[in-house]
């Protein structure tokens, strides 16, 4: 009963809001180029289905590739940091500098350098830059969080650095990494969208470009359809990563305790 309510209530709220929206817009006769009714948005969605799906796929591709690269790169660099204090002290400030510089400000430069003829690559690079840092910083912290007594025990048993890394530090870092991946997944999507906005021209084919295009033509219903798709994509990424987190942690990690009641 409680479980059913947990899903039923937000769903009911959504339906109620959509209904109120629909009724208000129709009752007040709001023009469709200002605020479209949900039914207008649904129609726009259906009419443009193939092109919207193609754009969704383009954005999804950029997001996923950037996210996978950021995860691999962030974990890789964090591992190198964990093996050498000197490398960490040398590189970390630059990683921070890259992180705190707003990506919108770097994006035009990257687009020029990579070139509009390789726009996909530029978009991936920008989305990568946005999502890389949380992975790096959280994994670095996670690798350091291994129990010191366990490290001593490993050393007592003659473990190599590799064994300590693989059998102790990486598993200790896993909850940190998975938490960071949930943040980075969302950031990669934001990065992909921002990059497309900056690219601006028709060379980009993702959802952000569809929004610009629809905006220029005052096709507000289509803009809303794109927005809904972007939101759905963000939620799907978050849900997938939450599921991954649950699958990997629920057997042993404290964070999963509550769910068992």
């Amino acid at each position: 009963m409680k479980a059913a309510l947990k899903y039923l209530l937000p769903f009911a709220l959504g339906v109620a809001v959509l209904a109120a929206w629909q009724i208000t817009v129709r009752a007040l006769d709001v023009p469709v180029y200002l605020v479209p009714a949900p039914s207008d948005i649904a129609r726009a969605f259906a009419d443009n289905f193939p092109s919207l799906m193609a754009s969704l796929w383009a954005t999804l591709q950029v997001t996923l590739i950037a996210f996978v690269l950021a995860t691999a790169g962030g974990v890789g660099l964090a591992v190198i940091f964990s093996q050498s204090r000197m490398v960490e002290n040398t590189l970390y400030p630059y990683a921070v500098a890259l992180q705190v510089t707003p990506v919108v400000a770097i994006a035009p430069l990257i687009l020029i350098w990579v070139g509009y003829d390789r726009i996909e690559l530029a978009l991936i690079l920008i989305a990568f830059l946005v999502s890389f840092f949380p992975i790096l910083s959280n994994t670095t912290l996670g690798l350091k969080s291994a129990d010191h007594n366990l490290i001593d025990l490993f050393k007592l048993y003659g473990a190599s650095r590799w064994q300590i890394l693989v059998r102790l530090q990486l598993p200790s870092a896993l909850p940190y990494l998975l938490g960071a991946m949930k943040i980075a997944g969302g950031l990669a999507l934001i990065g992909a969208v921002v990059a497309e906005f900056v690219a601006g021209s028709g060379t980009a084919t993702g959802l952000a470009w569809r929004i610009i295009e629809a905006g220029n033509r005052l096709e507000i219903a289509k803009m809303f359809a794109c927005l809904a798709l972007l939101a759905a994509l963000g939620i799907a990424i978050f849900a997938a990563l939450s599921a991954l987190e649950y699958a990997l942690l629920h057997k042993w990690h404290e964070s999963a305790l509550k769910k068992q009641g």
Partner: peptide, 18 residues
């Protein structure tokens, strides 16, 4: 001071594994 991600058997195996 056990490895929380490993079951009792795997924890007890540590020295032998290493």
């Amino acid at each position: 001071t056990l490895m929380p991600w490993a079951n009792a058997l795997t924890n007890a195996r540590l020295a032998l594994d290493l």
